[in-house]
């Protein structure tokens, strides 16, 4: 792919003993993109990030981040990236300002520009007036934005966000994503891992990883088109019975609960009537059947079902 890609990996593999945590993954991320790495816990997301940051040696495969080799030029990568983990690794007994100042020292932000840069970050994180407050006393959303400020203190071109919104309220999450979009407009590339499917919608492209394998890497729209067959939303009086009946039908590839409704993925066009009939015969009163566009969750479920 493109040689000017910010991240470019080929057949990246990491084995821990018998366990293959990351299995032959290849993808690339361009400048200014938001790339979401989507997958359940233990699917290999963190292992991949650690290899990309140059702190974990791949077993095989190659990768370049910011043009540097991930195996040999880890130190150069570390200077050029920002990293924010799900635990918002702040020093809780340090104030907002002291946390920022610490990372400014770590990333060697020139002393003459330090004050100005820190004030910029405080404003960006919406923490003006709270500079002297201890980080441990901030709410989850503020801690999250402060952690982002710390990771961005040296204006890196690439930010790794590892589950950045875990345990944060929905409004703060929304504000956080607004902030992230602002950064991409300045040309910053974002590599974000998440297991929130709705959050992945913010990304330009999504990589879906499951059991160490990259199942797909595409835009959200492309991913949704990858679902073969038709997706039906079924409203009925007995969803549990409905699911039990649908699971036995060869025309149905997949069934999931969606609230009180049932989502069924059909293999061919003509099965809609068959579904209605089978449910009726099983004693389920069907209120409504609607064809729907698949959500990312449906895509993910269908991809995994396809792989298994």
């Amino acid at each position: 792919m493109a040689t000017d890609a910010i991240i470019d990996v080929r057949n990246l593999t990491k084995r821990f003993g018998d366990l293959t945590a990351v299995d032959q993954i290849s993808f690339s991320v361009g400048a200014g993109e938001i790339f979401a790495f989507l997958g359940p816990n233990g699917s290999g997301k963190s292992t991949t990030i650690r290899m990309l940051c140059g702190i974990l040696r791949p077993t095989s495969g190659t990768g370049r981040v910011l043009g540097f080799d991930i195996e040999r030029e880890g130190e150069k990568i570390k200077r050029g990236i920002g990293y924010m983990s799900q635990r918002f690794s702040l020093y809780e007994d340090l104030t907002v300002w002291e946390n920022l100042e610490f990372y400014a020292g770590i990333y060697n932000v020139p002393r003459t520009r330090r004050r100005e840069r820190l004030e910029e970050l405080v404003a960006m994180a919406g923490l003006t007036g709270r500079e002297r407050q201890l980080a441990g006393q901030l709410s989850g959303g503020w801690q999250q934005r402060l952690a982002l400020g710390c990771a961005f203190v040296h204006q890196p071109r690439l930010l790794f966000l590892d589950e950045p919104t875990a345990g944060v309220d929905p409004i703060s999450r929304q504000e956080f994503w607004t902030l992230i979009h602002d950064l991409t407009r300045q040309g910053v590339t974002i590599f974000v891992t998440t297991h929130y499917l709705d959050e992945a919608e913010h990304a330009n492209r999504i990589g879906m990883i499951h059991l160490g394998k990259l199942r797909a890497a595409a835009t959200p729209a492309e991913l949704k088109r990858m679902v073969h067959g038709r997706l039906l939303n079924i409203a009925c009086d007995a969803p549990f019975e409905a699911v039990a009946i649908l699971q036995t039908m060869p025309e149905v590839r997949n069934v999931t609960f969606q609230g009180n409704d049932v989502h069924a993925l059909l293999t061919d066009e003509g099965a809609e009537e068959t579904i209605r009939n089978s449910l009726r015969q099983g004693g389920v009163v069907v209120h409504d059947v609607q064809p729907i566009t698949p959500s990312l969750e449906d895509v993910f479920v269908s991809l995994i079902a396809g792989a298994e």
């Binding site: 130190e75 990293y83 983990s85 635990r87 690794s89 020093y91 770590i106």
Partner: peptide, 9 residues
Amino acid sequence: TLEQLIVTP
């Protein structure tokens, strides 16, 4: 925070 420091220079 150690995890964080490891990915810094």
